[in-house]
Design a protein around this nucleic acid. Sequence first.
DNA 1: CTGAAAGCGCTTACAG
DNA 2: CTGAAAGCGCTTACAG
Lengths: 328, 328
Amino acid sequence: MPRLTSADVARESGVSRTTVSYVLNGKSDVAIPEATRQRVRDAAARLGYTPSAAARTLRSGRSDLVLCVLPDWTIGPVIDTLLDHLTTELAERGLSVLVHHDRGPRPLAELWRAVTPRAVLGLAPFAEDDERAMRQAGIQVVGSALDEDDHPGTFSVPQTRIGRLQVEHLAERGHRVVAYAAPSDDRLAAFADRRLAGVVLECERLGLTAPRVDAVDLDVASAAAVVRSWRAGPEPVTAVAAYNDEVALAVLSGLRAEGLRTPQDVAVIGVDDIPAARLAAPALTTVWQAIDAQATYLAAAVIAALDDAVDPPAQPADVFHVIARDST
Amino acid sequence: MPRLTSADVARESGVSRTTVSYVLNGKSDVAIPEATRQRVRDAAARLGYTPSAAARTLRSGRSDLVLCVLPDWTIGPVIDTLLDHLTTELAERGLSVLVHHDRGPRPLAELWRAVTPRAVLGLAPFAEDDERAMRQAGIQVVGSALDEDDHPGTFSVPQTRIGRLQVEHLAERGHRVVAYAAPSDDRLAAFADRRLAGVVLECERLGLTAPRVDAVDLDVASAAAVVRSWRAGPEPVTAVAAYNDEVALAVLSGLRAEGLRTPQDVAVIGVDDIPAARLAAPALTTVWQAIDAQATYLAAAVIAALDDAVDPPAQPADVFHVIARDST
DNA sequence: CTGAAAGCGCTTACAG
DNA sequence: CTGAAAGCGCTTACAG
């Protein structure tokens, strides 16, 4: 069964393919009587015609696809929500969001050349040559940065800010000896290191002891061992800033295994506010991100890039907030 | 800067576009001397040429994209892992996996027509007319089913099996009065109902009291209220099968709030084995899914569909297992 | 062994 | 107001 083309619609409505194209693309600068327009639209609908995206892309050199490239680490609920919002907001502009999990050996270039997206949105920094190649191919690129510097055309989620907030909160509660519970998954290193940097900076600023840093596996035994080492020595740790809520839950379980009380003996703060955080015993204090604001910003950034806007939208401020619960 | 085309490669290597196409696509049935082949490949590499996917798709009517449509519910870690595996396994066949979050008002048809994928993989059942339209357009469709019936060309994850396993495990521990903790998120209803059906069937089979069923929000107060109602009356509930680990953690927190002991007073079993499960107090018993086996099967199913294989691969058996921990 | 030519389905400058 | 024609970049049947 052959594909339905604009020629079929043209025949059905008794006009030329040119007219079909004008009508279906809503070209209002060409004067076509409303009656003709309606006839064409009816025919298209009756036939169930949809234009070939391949032909359109070939002709115009651009598609209506926005490719969102996810990094190598596990998608947390944050990214998940972000994608939802993004999909919805860009859909209003007729843009479809396609997500690619950047795993395995295939070079990124193969993918974006295959989809010819209008824009590529990276949720982790791109390799420099990848980014250059995409721009050269006329694709709008919105990258990501993990630090607080504002790069133009870049989405920064200042990870250091998270670490700072954690320490700030712990210091307010009177803690002076803080540890950082890093994830054991290497793929998270880029994020974990930035958050740690924030923890270190804030400890310095507040005159606290430099933080101890250890990786904590997501199991009780590993966490208990780390907790034991933190409590040994002349200056036992009394508060833990964890990479995220899962690591924080592991620390909580380690404290429990060691017979320590939270928050009396050791306080714990996570990041993300996953559902399990508020259900933990004690309920976990954590840093929450304003995903909606970030998603709206990202959508606006993509749209601005597509419109060749001179002024990219302003990054949302204050996207992070501490949710104080019983673990601190 | 104009796009690099096969004509550029042809000029650079002193052959025709025909020869370039033959060489670059590895057509071994045309006799082209190795020297020429090498010259063409060198030129292509030197120039950094990659064929236009749009043109290729337009010409051949098929792309190298596999579109994976995610349903409206939150991606759990299970789906996440599944996508990883799928991406890796299909990459070996030169296929790129693109994921679409099916939210918002845009009809699915617009998307698949825009990407012209080789195959579409649905992780929840498709609407009938969507599926028909895709097949008509020559797209291979691998759908999903939530029950135990084997539909051809369909990926079944028998949700009822999960509910059965939960009850089987609880009954082995001596429980006779079981409750089902349903999620309060309506989008999960399709899954929750199937799992509940399994719980009900297994209760019947084992001659247990018909299960009480209540939705449990992911917060302590809501869970505590539900727990209270379960414990009231002449036949207090002594075991809870939860929709998933998050709901199970909520039940755990509700039991704690009500001063009940787990598992002595009430046992709890979840589904998924999220990291927080093993870190909970007490560590949560749960049903684990063999994601690897399912992903491998899915990849094989897609490939079989693309190859027009007569025999689709066999569904993996025994993909679910109970991980017994301290909550039962 | 290699190339000229047609055609996939669309859009748009141009001619009428 | 509407249509004939060119051309986006590729592949492949056909001719040499």
